[in-house]
């Protein structure tokens, strides 16, 4: 019924899509990982005002669907807003998708896809 153990036993990294400050802080905590050459893939994406929504989406798909070693995907809430349809339609258990606040954008529980689901379930 639940996902088999093979679906998540190799997932050991965290990935992050965020603005520069969030990514820097999380990297300082030590979550950054670059896979060995030749296809050195980073597990983080820095988004600034110039980043296209398509690039964010591509990274989102890469982290959630293509890479099998990521257990948790952190994404800044204001960035999640840009690809909201993607985030809202994402229902898989792995990797866990977490919307985090950023320095400039305080956390708004109303926008969080999971919290909205919680609310809907309890009929509020």
């Amino acid at each position: 019924m639940a996902a088999p153990a093979s679906a998540y036993k190799d997932r050991q990294f965290l990935a992050v899509i965020g603005d520069e400050d969030s990514v820097t802080g999380l990297l300082l905590a030590g979550i950054g990982h670059v896979t060995p050459a030749p296809d050195s893939q980073k597990n983080f994406l820095v988004v600034d005002s110039k980043t296209e929504a398509s690039a964010i989406e591509e990274a989102f798909v890469r982290f959630t669907e293509e890479r099998k070693d990521i257990g948790i995907l952190l994404i800044n809430q204001h960035i999640a807003e840009k690809i909201r349809h993607r985030v809202d339609s994402y229902t898989a258990a792995f990797p866990a998708l977490l919307e985090i606040p950023s320095k400039d954008h305080p956390y708004d529980p109303e926008k969080d896809s999971v919290l909205r689901r919680v609310r809907r379930l309890f009929g509020e």
């Binding site: 050991q12 990294f13 670059v34 258990a93």
Partner: peptide
């Protein structure tokens, strides 16, 4: 910082918890 990130120091592993026959993974 972004350039010098190479290998994750902070990682997660999953363990399982059994609730009425349902395996809930936990990080």
């Amino acid at each position: 910082v972004q350039e010098s990130a190479k290998s994750a120091r902070f990682r997660v592993r999953t363990k399982q918890e059994n609730v009425s026959g349902v395996f809930l993974p936990a990080f």
